[in-house]
């Protein structure tokens, strides 16, 4: 008697994970917007507030996309922050040591090459993750815990924990510049989110990722080379961490082995709040973006209200539990 409703509930949960969560998040967004509009008033709608929100969101957003990819396949990527810092430091090192003059083709070329080198480092970490997970069969949490410690260790060992700072103008622009009032970093986030959404929803590769997340064994037996898909997926996840690295080092105008470490669990929080099933198979980029906007809105509003950022953390946690509990509460009613 206790089991039959559970099974029905599971089916319901699966259906809700797609569109249902997005509806819940929309309602939550509108409700929060109203609450903050009433409590804060005009200041909440000022251009400054909106712009500071738009400046703060991209780092967490791109990192959450990286985490989401791994989560969709039923895995986890704990190494995203460490990867971002390692490739950020690579870029920073090249930019501060090999930059010739302050103008010209070589000057621009070194900047492009530095970023390419950073992406190469990120891709390499992704290859290690993907190989160990897909071909050696190590559980993702373990493998990425290893590469996380390894990357962080490499970054700390090489820099002795020091900060590398002072980059050319164009690099700083990525993190701090605006195009027609829109922060460039937000455009970078959009340039990441759109292809990822297209890849997941409109390509065979995306369909395979979802299938692996639902049932890896069945997917393999139906003739999909799951190992190749997973390898590619972890490389993509790492590359997104590389993009986040560029945004981060540009925004702080510096790189360090320990930047953004508190983001790691927040990326999981954002992805799961956005409707990504932590066991894989379900989740949309749209949901993740909504979740990011909600988190950022709470954070900015609390800032305006002079409330502690730590209270923001607590509220984020509370909202995650509330949203995760909604399908269950909804499923209870018909009984």
């Amino acid at each position: 008697m206790r089991n039959a409703p559970t099974l029905a509930l599971r089916g319901r949960l699966i259906r809700l994970a797609g569109s249902g969560t997005i509806v819940t998040l929309m309602l939550l967004l509108v409700a929060l917007w109203l609450v903050f509009a009433i409590t804060i008033g005009d200041r909440f709608f000022s251009v400054n507030t909106l712009q500071s929100m738009a400046f703060q969101m991209p780092e967490l957003g791109i990192l959450s996309l990286a985490m989401m990819l791994a989560l969709l396949s039923g895995g986890l990527n704990l190494s995203i922050i460490a990867t971002a810092n390692l490739s950020g430091l690579t870029i920073a090192f090249l930019l501060t040591h090999y930059i010739p003059g302050s103008q010209g083709i070589a000057w621009a070329g070194v900047q492009v090459l530095a970023i390419a080198a950073g992406f190469a480092v990120a891709a390499l970490v992704g290859l290690v993750n993907g190989f160990v997970i897909a071909y050696l069969g190590v559980s993702p949490i373990l493998a990425t815990l290893g590469t996380m410690t390894l990357c962080k260790g490499l970054a700390i060992g090489l820099t002795r924990g020091n900060v590398i700072s002072g980059f050319p103008e164009p690099i700083v622009f990525i993190g701090n510049g605006t195009v027609f009032g829109v922060p460039f970093a937000l455009i970078v986030l959009a340039l990441c989110a759109l292809p990822v959404a297209l890849m997941l929803n409109a390509t065979p590769f995306g369909a395979r990722v979802y299938m692996i997340g639902s049932n890896e064994k069945a997917t393999r037996y139906s003739g999909v080379d799951t190992r190749a898909v997973l390898l590619k997926l972890y490389v993509l996840s790492s590359l997104l961490a590389g993009v986040a690295a560029v945004v981060m080092l540009a925004r702080f105008n510096s790189a360090n082995a320990a930047y953004g470490e508190s983001y790691l669990l927040v990326t999981i929080l954002a992805a799961v709040l956005g409707g990504v099933d932590p066991f894989g198979g379900f989740g949309k980029v749209g949901g993740l973006l909504l979740a990011l906007i909600i988190l950022q809105m709470i954070s900015s509003a609390f800032n305006l209200l002079n409330l502690s950022q730590f209270l923001t953390l607590a509220i984020w946690g509370g909202i995650l539990i509330a949203v995760a509990a909604v399908p269950h509460l909804g499923g209870k009613a018909p009984r």
């Binding site: 669990l265 927040v266 999981i268 929080l269 799961v272 730590f310 953390l313 607590a314 984020w316 946690g317 509370g318 995650l320 539990i321 995760a324």
Partner: peptide, 8 residues
């Protein structure tokens, strides 16, 4: 993940 953030 949620309670970690709430407690802390």
């Amino acid at each position: 993940v949620a309670t970690l953030n709430i407690f802390y």
